[in-house]
Design a protein around this nucleic acid. Sequence first.
RNA 1: GCGGGCGUGGUGGAAUUGGUAGACACGCCGGCCUUAGGAGCCGGUGGGCGUAAGCCCUUGGAGGUUCGAGUCCUCUCGCCCGCACCA
Length: 835
Amino acid sequence: MSEQRYDARAIEARWQRVWADERTWEVTNEAGGRDAVQSSYVLEMLPYPSGEPHIGHLKCYAVGDAIAHFRRRTGHRVLHPMGYDAFGLPAENHAINTGVHPRESTAVSIASFQRQFRAWGISIDWSRELATDEPEYYRWTQWIFLELYRSGLAYRKDAAVKWCPTDQTVLANEQVVDGRCERCGAEVEVRQLEQWFFRITDYAERLLRDLDEIDWPEHVKTMQRNWIGRSEGAEVSFTCEELGIVYPVFTTRPDTLFGATFFVLAPEHPDLMRLAAGTPYERDVHEYINHALTESNEERGAAERPKTGVPLGRTVTNPVNGEQLPMYVADYVLMEYGTGAIMAVPAHDERDYEFARAFDLPIHRVIADADGGDDDALPFTGDGPLVNSHKDFDGLPNREALERIVDWLQRESKGHATVSYRLRDWLISRQRYWGCPIPVVYCDGCGLVPLEADELPVQLPDIEDYAPKGRSPLAAAEDWVNTTCPVCGGRARRETDTMDTFVDSSWYFLRYCDARNDEAAWDPAVLREWMPVDQYIGGVEHAILHLMYARFFTKALADLDHLDFQEPFAALFTQGMITKDGAKMSKSRGNVVSPAAIVERYGADAARCYVLFMGPPDQDAEWSDEGVEGVYRFLSRLWRLTAETAQRLSADDADRRDWSGTLTAADLLDSAGEGPDLQLLRKTHWAIDKVSGDLRRFAFNTAIAAVMELLNDCSRLREAASAMTLAHALQNAGSLLSVFAPHLGAEVYERLTGERVWEAPWPQADPALLESDVHEIVCQVNGKVRDRVSASADADPDELKALCRSAANVRVHLEGKEIVKEVVVPGKLVNIVVR
RNA sequence: GCGGGCGUGGUGGAAUUGGUAGACACGCCGGCCUUAGGAGCCGGUGGGCGUAAGCCCUUGGAGGUUCGAGUCCUCUCGCCCGCACCA
């Protein structure tokens, strides 16, 4: 009797054993490069192993695996590897609380991830598995660091940086969201510290431009464009004559230079006290600066906050007209952007306008309304002709004047055209233990000394006390810290900061290609076969951080001749979040759905199909327990009908003979005419066509729905159709479904054909079976459906018109009316327009 | 404020190029089978009117283009995401 039940657990265990024993999903590196074989690299974002995988992982791998299977079955050699982003704070914080070494707790999590990924039946090439905390891996992370250092792309600088008081470490700009630590949510502080940076800003232009070359979702590209924040403008020099200091400012509006009426420096500007010294404002400036620096970013950044500031008691000369502009310090000017100083044009800038009103400063309009008048309220930020500027420019449309003014500044050496970016250099040092050591030492004699490649890896030592104390816990490991200088042999101390874990994940996709190479990080010839990644899959939360860093690494390494491509991920797919009770799943909310529990109860195939069936995979979707059950019922029905049909097939010798698994209309026409067999055969080929098309456009939800439709027809026609036709339909259902439900797909296929579905080519729809000889034609009168008629596929428009006019309900609606027009869409509809 | 996206039954969603709105599934209702069902099978299910045939309404709202609009255009309302005093 157990034969009659769909036993997901037994079926899944059986096939997982086959795949593990036979290493089914391993691929070798072919010497021929990617032209020789159709190679395809399908990759999901590197998981951070913490506890066990959540439902988002399941969805991500269900998507990636469907793509990987589909590509394999359509003739590609597919690289589909797995690894772990194993360094990171959660394991370290756990160590602080429990004393368990992060390496141990991470290993436990990794084992749990491995177990789950196997239980889900994901087709992974396990021979390339890696973890970023292994010395065999981070040795090469350190090597890349040194390559960047030698080319000037890694450097130390003293800067105002973001410090997370909870995590006790500095953060990159990208890791601060709304003034808070992206990881723990604590409000960040600003500290002046010397830190390690990667010069990602050198790549701003290329990171922006090359977005046009890659097949990524538009919203992700937009987010990156916003983050890079390119602005074209000019740098213009203003001079404080009294002190003889030149202040360059960046402006996107050099056309408004003649309207500048004051000048503002950021509170962090280093010259402030020097400027104010000896003026009556010295004390006020001092107080203002102190106050500004104690305010949080959030307070300062508040949009509708009234403008504040203090005069400096000095003036600068406007280079275009020699006017003396009073200088101010005000916190609406940011030190991080541009030069930390601005020329203020209140007539044409909202912020400057507010400040001018608050401080009763003059407002000089220099751009007229589009029609030349001056009726529009100030500040006027639109376009119009220049006025009150200079005889050479007055009257010119401002956009044209802008260019002429920049040319003129350039000739006069008062300024030049330039481009400014919002993107900042990537701060990569962290004052924490569980990360990749930075491979440099500080020698008493030689100063900062980078290690040589053959001295790598700098191993992370074991320590007793993980608690951060404002500096890396590594600083307390005296035996490790004290070393000798590789240059002079003298006393030296190791760098005790570790790298941001985003460094580890910025190149792992390269390592997979050549994961066991212990001579080099990779062999460029091997990379040529697989890179760039053909399809990358992951959450949109990495739209800026990981995806920008990985692109930067790829470009930098290409410039250093280690790679011969510019973009790591040719195509990107971002899957939507699965929510529960309308919110993101989280332990604190108590709305977490455990994939392990779902797989335990319904099987991996049902769990995988459900997360894909929920809706379009790039959209967020709400979890429903009833939904999984529905999919489970569908799989059960497929299994039962397969078992029943297999039995019928073996009992019926007539149907069994010459069974090849391929049927055509001709096979069935003489025996069955237009009966149920042909109907089912047509539906089968419709499903093949539908699923193939849907897979190409990542419409997994409708692909699964199509297999459901096919199965519904199988059920409906199971008595009427022959066992052979039914078997053909079910075999194809199993074959199509195997990209989503690989275990049951394999089981169904094997039962009906004796073959392995993953070795079978992807089914091809027979075009002759996709088109029916008879079409149902919709009959509309004035655009409203009034009847339906059937017509042969080759009926000409006049026949269709006649057919429709005579349809019973159409005649009712034509009664007493005059036919004005008839529109015919062959094979679809006829619309009769009447008056 | 700027940029991007989304509004379709009780619910998740489908409709690929302007051509039958609501595929598929959940839920619900009815029936069969069963000692029993949180199992299985069959049927029904956008709203309104009607015994029925059928008619009217319906894709956030208002206009428009078209023989025909969920789809295109204009305006508008609501929600979500990203950036935000970036000069």
